[in-house]
Amino acid sequence: MTPAPASSPEPTRSFRRKAQTRAALVRAAQSFLAEGQTNTPVLEITQAADVGIGSFYNHFESKDQLFEAAVEHVMDLLGAVLDELTTDAGDPAVTFATSFRLMGRFHRREPQLSKVILHRALDVLGAQTGLAPRVRRDIQAGVESGRFTMTDVDVAVVCAVGAATFLGQLLHAEPDRDDAGTTDRATEALLRMLGISADEALAICSSPLPELHTAGLRGAVYEVTTNGVATR
């Protein structure tokens, strides 16, 4: 008789409390980042999170480290959503275009979370997690498959990440601008830069998109995993 697989141990009360404290700090940091308040003292952040200042230093060495974690949290969650929605695309050009088109719509769909990313835009390009590595992965797949003729992946990533950043800023600065149309035109331009013909780029960017569900990103609690146990 095959023994039943061992179940993951229930997180201890102490573990849950630490995870909740970290989550509260990350959420508070995201709120300040969304408002552009990067000079906020640590004490004010802990007060907003309703935790003691001593608890802050149990999780983070500095405010910058907390802000970095807050941005990575949003980017990782959004990146995971985009990955799920493009899993079955098949064509690297469609995968890249779909992710970029959905990202453009994200700026209007979740303006506060968008601003969290945009206020740390210079950190996005060099990040080892989140969106930039996914952009590089998708462009590299397009180059290796022959779909993209622009073979300097580094330059292509700079162009794509830069376009995504300034696109978000444009959509926030001009709230009456059509975000979908603007995003699709920007995506067409990037596809053509990568080597896709004008007609095909237009066809790709005119195709239906999967629904971007972002409710799970809003107010999401920072996940902490220890010994295979994840808490929210």
Rank of each mutant, 00 (worst) to 15 (best):
Q20S: 14
I45T: 07
A28S: 13
H107F: 15
V71W: 03
L66E: 02
Q47E: 15
D83F: 00
S55N: 12
A34L: 12
G52I: 00
A48Y: 06
V94S: 00
R16Q: 13
A34V: 12
M103I: 08
F32L: 14
G52P: 00
E68P: 01
R27Y: 05
G104C: 08
L82E: 00
H73R: 05
G104M: 06
A29R: 04
P41K: 03
H59Y: 03
K18N: 10
H59T: 04
M75K: 09
F100A: 14
K18L: 07
E44W: 05
G54S: 13
D64M: 11
V94R: 00
V71L: 09
L82S: 01
F96Y: 10
A24R: 12
V26Y: 02
R17Y: 11
R16K: 14
G54W: 01
E61P: 07
L33V: 08
A69L: 02
A69I: 02
F106H: 08
Y57E: 05
I53H: 12
V94D: 00
R16T: 11
L77I: 10
R17N: 11
Q65E: 15
T21K: 05
A28F: 05
L43C: 05
R13S: 13
F96M: 09
L78Y: 09
S14I: 07
N58R: 12
T98K: 00
F32D: 06
A69T: 13
A97T: 08
A24C: 04
Q20T: 12
A29T: 06
G36N: 09
L25W: 02
T95E: 13
E61S: 15
E72T: 14
P92E: 09
A93G: 15
A34I: 10
L78V: 08
T86Y: 00
L33F: 07
G54K: 08
A93W: 01
V51W: 02
L77A: 14
F56E: 00
Q65S: 13
R101V: 03
E61W: 09
L43A: 15
E68K: 14
G52E: 09
E68I: 07
V51F: 03
G52T: 06
M75Y: 03
I45P: 03
T38N: 07
D50L: 10
V71T: 14
H107V: 13
F100T: 10
T38R: 14
A80D: 15
A34Y: 10
A89E: 11
Q37F: 10
A29I: 07
V74T: 12
L102S: 02
R105P: 00
D88I: 01
H73G: 04
G52L: 02
T46G: 05
K63V: 10
T40H: 04
E84A: 15
Y57Q: 05
V71H: 04
Q20H: 11
A93I: 05
V51Y: 02
T21Y: 01
T95L: 01
G54C: 02
A93P: 05
E72C: 08
F60C: 02
D50Q: 13
T21F: 01
E44S: 13
A23V: 04
T40R: 11
A69V: 10
A69R: 07
R17D: 10
Q47Y: 07
F56C: 01
T98N: 00
V81I: 13
R13L: 14
D64P: 02
E68F: 09
A89H: 01
E72G: 06
G79M: 02
R16G: 05
I53Y: 09
E84N: 12
L82D: 00
A23Q: 04
S62T: 14
F100N: 07
T40E: 10
R22A: 09
L78D: 03
L85G: 01
A93K: 04
